[in-house]
Amino acid sequence: MSTALESPAPARSRKARRSAGNTAPTAPTGPRENPFARSGAMLVMGVFTLYFLVPIWWLLVAASKSSSQFTSTNPLWFADMSIVQNIGDLVAYRDGVYFRWLLNSVFYAGAGALLATVIAGMCGYALAKYRFPGREVIFNVVLGGVLVPATALALPLFLIFSQVNLTNTYWAVFLPSLVSPFGVYLARIYAAASVPDELIEAARLDGAGEVRTFFTVAVRLMFPALVTVFLFQFVAIWNNFFLPLIMLRDEALFPVTLGLYSWNSQVNQIPELRGYVLIGALLSIIPLIITFLLLQRFWRNGLGTGSVK
């Protein structure tokens, strides 16, 4: 069962790799391509690529300018290169508080996503492989959780955390980040499809406990799904802005999104902050890019997970 399910995926991706250079996704029918469909598809993709990349290009250009050139030169082309100077200013401003924020973000997103993945993986595995009363009810509640936007939960969470005096601490952002209903859903679907009951049975017969079976057998089989959950959760925590905004008051605890937002909200009256916001925003996307480059192979596999059953 596992081979049956896993073998098409690499095959598909090999084919996709091979054909990526010369085949448009809209023309899967035969050897003869319609040149109009092909150039049409390329045009659509080109427009969207431009649409997504221009803001990043703008950011790169803007972050490389000194503040006096920012308003007076072409916004989409470089003036003199002062990006090193700008980074130096950012390091110096308020004792490099920005890098503290960056580290906080890496911690919230990295540790949070890792633990969230473990928890979601265990939940999904348990829901898929154990039979117990209320299993479907629990699963449906978790599914319902996917539909509730995190933003809607921020204020209730604040009031709850206030009661136990945990607002304005690392926990206030970290604990809610450990929950990923979508991760549970994905892990369950994937565990059901990729972890054969026979294998679990065999592990039990060999004397492995349930926890050991999960970590040594199931986790390896579920790995692509777990990487997907990790990436989703990493990005979700990294971009989660509203929860820290509501929870945190101490600048030393801020993630980079909230810190940059705070500065940006005062650009009108303290214009020198604009330069810091620009260079800070540029630097803040680097960790995300690194994470994606390292894990994109798994991400692509994982996205298709459960779509063909």
Binding site: L155, F158, L159, Q163, I246, R249, Y261, S262
Partner: peptide
């Protein structure tokens, strides 16, 4: 303690905190 400017979220935080005590 710090945060964004008033209308950027700090006022709403004050109201939340007043409510939470």
């Amino acid at each position: 303690q710090t945060g964004p400017n008033g209308n950027g979220g700090t006022y709403q935080n004050f109201f939340n905190q007043l409510k939470a005590g």
